[in-house]
């Protein structure tokens, strides 16, 4: 992802000690926007289960199953994602989904439209608190939670993977990628930040 040029793999910020924050750019991901059509929620849920193995969450949350998942992105709207697709197949995600969902939803190809960073490590939450005005406490933002928010004057979407350890994924419009990378590196430098190669 050329838009994350600032995220040079390696150690950033505080140099001593174990890294407090680990940042992984997520680039091998296919994305599609799903909009439910009027009155088709039950059908959509059924077909979504068939297509990627999860039903669309009705409230701000994400649902993941293996390499695929859905992140709530507004009433009746979700961002569908799938890892591990390569080449042209990655850009046919919407087309393939639309084939299964039929008239239950409108599907729009979004692959490449987001810059996505995964943040993990013991201080991921503290670093994110410098960017997003969202309460990321265990009770308020448990595993599988999601939010649409703003940070660093950018529209952002954040979700927490369904795992015990707090692992967050932070997405912005692709064009903001460098600014998001800058915001994350600044926020994490206090804790020592390890940037891994893009996955």
């Amino acid at each position: 992802m050329a838009d994350l040029a600032l995220l040079r793999p390696g150690r950033h910020g505080r140099a001593d000690g174990a890294p407090g924050v680990v940042v992984t750019p997520i680039t091998d991901i296919a994305l599609a926007a799903i909009s439910v059509r009027a009155g088709t929620e039950p059908v959509l849920a059924e077909r979504m289960m068939a297509a990627i193995g999860v039903a669309p969450p009705a409230r701000p949350a994400c649902a993941m199953s293996g390499s695929a998942g859905l992140v709530w992105s507004g009433p009746g709207q979700w961002l569908a994602l799938r890892r591990g697709l390569a080449g042209a197949a990655r850009h046919c995600f919407a087309q393939d989904l639309a084939g299964v969902l039929g008239s239950a939803a409108s599907v729009t190809e979004m692959t490449g439209s987001r810059s996505i960073l995964r943040l993990s490590g013991p201080y991921a939450r503290d670093a994110l608190a410098k960017i997003v005005p969202v309460d990321l406490d265990e009770a308020a933002f448990p595993a599988g939670a999601a939010a649409l928010t703003n940070g660093g004057y950018m529209p952002l979407q954040i979700w927490r993977l369904p795992a015990d350890e707090p692992v967050f994924e932070l997405a912005c419009y692709r064009s903001y990628g460098d600014s998001l990378a800058d915001a994350v590196l600044q926020a994490a430098r206090e804790h020592g930040c390890e940037v891994l190669s893009a996955a």
Binding site: A2, D3, A5, G112, G152, Y153, M154, Y173, R174, S175, Y176, G177, D178, S179, L180, D182, A183, Q186
Partner: peptide
């Protein structure tokens, strides 16, 4: 805070920027 100089506001780059 961090938002001064070049970081005053975020910058959007086109897909062909580089």
């Amino acid at each position: 805070g961090h938002h001064r100089g070049k970081a005053f506001r975020p910058t959007r780059r086109t897909p062909t920027h580089a």
